[in-house]
Every structure is written in structure tokens, then in C-alpha cells.
Amino acid sequence: MVPDPNYICSVEKPEDFDSFWEDVTKTLGNIDIDISCVLDDFRSTEDISVYEVFFNSLDNIRVSGWYAVPSKYSGKLPGLMLVPGYQSDPPIPREWAKKGYACLSVNPRGKVRSRSQFDPGYPGLLTYGIVDRNTYSYRGFYCDAWRGIDFLLDRDEVDSERIAVTGSSQGGGLTITTAAMRKEVKAAAAGAPYLCGYMDAIELTHTYPYEEINDYLRSNPGSRKTVEDTLSYFDGISFADRIKCPIIVNIGLQDNVCPPETGYALFNQIGSKNKKLYEYDGHGHEAGRYIHSRIVDEFLEEHLGQE
């Protein structure tokens, strides 16, 4: 199966897309972030200090994260936000701190350590509240990631002019929305982006997690139009034209989770003039990670390396 690089997804950006998200971010901005950042001796090493982080997000949900910084540094550090996959547990980003970043690994609502107030489960998260854009799970989930940027901006050791975001799969999707919504993001690297072209993805592949939507549609006949309408506000492709920062995207042409067609469709809609797509033939959902991780390192170094 050879994916078409000119594939166009069916999603149409709603006319009130910007005003919808402006209202949401305004509501988010009115919530006191109330950061807690406590050194975790158990996870810290001689070279890396690890902190357990909590902050408030939309609906006053307490969101957790791991924050890792080099134990010794001079001047300000570049800030990096690492956003997680769908079902994976957010990692402690010691590897990124070793490379010289002040790195926040954010755990949006429903994930381990962030699930005491909201926990739709897995499977479940992808369709929770999907009948209404104002109740859909990702309304808050996206905000949790965006708030991670506020956390980095709050840190004295972080250079607010050098902040980037990266992740793969759902982390790729969150990278897209964060780069679109937070102008403080100076560079973004998105891998195998999920949450892009949802309604096409559920036809192009029949694997979880996208299969959750097919389960939902089968169980709720007649709901397709409502689901399409809601998802159009959350589709990464609807966010893409807002991205203005340098960005790289990598996709696997045999991706069995996030169809490469949706990756192409997303990339073609990205508004940044400084964008590059890396296509990995012979690779699945890991999207050439072994080769591509070096490219991400070099890309971030290029855009965040100089103080």
C-alpha cells in the first residue's frame, strides 16, 4: 500500500474555530496555575535534577508532569516540552536534560498521576464527551499540554525566547496544537502525528486507538455528523495553518496506527514557511525514530542552541 503524498483529508475547519479556541484559552487564562515543583531525590542523579510537578489547568484539573534539568549549568537553559503518546506513560525526561535542556514531560488529564479528577480510561479517552465540542475530552487535554508552556515560562532557569515542543504519535498531535496555539514556541518536532484527519484515519486503518471511533459510531448509529462536527474543532489539520515557527514532521510510510496519508495531509496544511517532512519508507509507527532522533537533536540545537 503506497500512501498518496497529495492526500487531502475530509475535515473542514469550522468558521468559528478561532473564536471557539479563543474562548477556551481565555477561560484557561483565568485559572490560577498554582505550580508545585518538588525535587524528587529518588529519580535525581548526580548530573540531573528531577522534579515532580503539578499545576492547574482547565476545569481546575490538577495536571502532573516530570521536570528534569542539568544539575550544573550557567546562564539560561533552553526549554523543551515533551508531550506523551496515547496509551504510554509519560517518561521522566532525563535524557533531554542530559542534552542541556530544561525539559517538562507533561501528563495531561487521565494519564497516570493526573487521573484523580478525570479518568475516561483506555479505551475511552478518544470518544469521551464527543457529542459536544464543549464536553469532548481533548478540550481540556489540549489545554493541559498548552499549560506546560506556562510552566516553562514561569521557571527562572528557562530562556523564554528558546522554547520548543516535541513528541510522537499523540505527542506529535499535541506538538501540532501547541505550536499552533502558543506563540512562545520557537521550534517544533512532531512525529507520526495522531489526532490529525480522524475521520479519514478510521477508514484507512482498523487498529486501536482510532478504532475507538468506529466502535462509537457502530454503537451510536446516527451520530456520525455530530462526531464529525466535534472533531473538526480538534483535528490537528484545522490547527495547522496557525503554525508559524520552524517545524519538522516525520512519518512512517507503513504506519499502522496513524496512517501516513493523514501525515501528508497535515504537513501540506502547516502554515510555517520553515517546514520539512521526513518520510521513512519501511517504517511503521516508530516513524524512523532510530534515524530521526539525531535529526531532531540537530533541529533543536539549530533553533534553540544559542543563548
Binding site: 487498529t207 496506527v257 509507527h285
Partner: peptide, 9 residues
């Protein structure tokens, strides 16, 4: 998971 992510349903 019901089946591992990416496995054909």
C-alpha cells in the same frame, strides 16, 4: 489495551 496498539482488529 484490548489488543496492542497497531494490531489489526
Amino acid at each position: 489495551e484490548i489488543i496492542p496498539q497497531g494490531t489489526s482488529n
